[in-house]
């Protein structure tokens, strides 16, 4: 673990990304302190450009503060990104572990299902799921999780296949430890490194996908989000560019930082690259 932190902190870009993410997260949590009113409330004249008066990023067509929307939107983006990744991870790990550990017919069947889900164009699939369940935070999380678990399953399966015949696994088996315990406590911890890397990238992808859904009008109507802000501002791009510009920048920065962190983790966890770095 110490080595990991050391290797990670060696990577300046990744460290910077992490710091930035922490700052955004704190701002998101503190949003009600910075902007005590609801982000939906009209607080000024409509269409105020950035830096005019008290509104850092200007106001929208009803005089709502864009910056307030971005801070409250960060909560939605993080929430959806993290929860949907967690759900996708649990599906993917379960499927991958069963397929990799049991092998044979189970493996075949599970991998066909995985391939099947990988073939469907993911955004179109997510759109349909959300539209059919009617847009809400729940349906968005489900949709994103359903389209993003297959790569996890494949990854975990590969790890399990290579680990299942190792001595420490065989030893547990001889001792009569039940299969699920072996999977959960012997193999899984050893297979987690690549999963963690993938997870950080999945959060980024989930945030991008949520913004795409909200942009198309499929966001949770009770919550403000970055994609919603851009979608609602789209017809006003000529009159008020700032309405769509700043939420977009917020998405880019967040996703960029997550990607940097993911790469940092990858480098830190992947011994081959670490070796090369040292060389």
């Amino acid at each position: 673990m110490k080595d990991l932190i050391k290797a990670f902190s060696h990577n300046k870009a990744a460290l910077g990304g992490l710091l930035f993410l922490v700052v955004i997260a704190i701002a998101a949590v503190a949003a009600p302190l910075i902007y005590p009113h609801s982000p939906w409330q009209m607080v000024g004249a409509p269409f105020q450009p950035p830096l005019s008066g008290p509104h850092l990023f200007g106001t929208d067509m009803l005089g709502r503060d864009i910056a307030a929307g971005i801070l409250y939107g960060a909560r939605v983006s993080f929430l959806i990104g993290i929860v949907s990744t967690a759900v996708a991870l649990s599906i993917g790990i379960t499927v991958g572990a069963l397929a990799g550990y049991l092998g044979g017919l189970v493996d075949d069947a599970l991998m066909r299902v995985t391939e099947f889900f990988q073939t469907i164009p993911s955004l179109i699939f997510a759109i349909v799921i959300v539209a059919i369940m009617s847009p809400s935070i729940l349906s968005i999380v489900i949709a994103i999780a359903i389209v993003s678990w297959p790569p996890v399953a494949r990854l975990v399966r590969a790890e399990f296949m290579s680990l299942r015949h190792r001595e420490f696994v065989e030893a547990s088996r001889v001792l009569g430890v039940p299969g699920w315990r072996i999977m959960a406590f012997d193999i899984l911890p050893n297979a987690m490194a690549p999963v963690i890397v993938t997870a950080s990238l999945m959060v980024a992808t989930a945030i991008l996908m949520e913004s795409g859904l909200s942009f198309l009008g499929l966001g949770d109507p009770n919550l403000i989000s970055w994609g919603y802000q851009i979608g609602a501002a789209r017809t006003m791009i000529r009159t008020a560019w700032w309405m769509s510009f700043f939420p977009g920048v917020a998405i880019i920065i967040t996703v960029l930082c997550l990607n940097l962190v993911g790469e940092g983790l990858n480098d830190a966890l992947n011994p081959r690259i670490v070796r090369r770095r040292k060389a």
Binding site: S38, W40, Q41, M42, L62, A131, S134, P135, G217, G219, D220, P221, N222
Partner: peptide, 18 residues
Amino acid sequence: YIRQQLQQVGIELDVTQT
């Protein structure tokens, strides 16, 4: 707008967007 206005008099709207 209507949701925001009603909230100010204590009526909460649970929005279904479809």
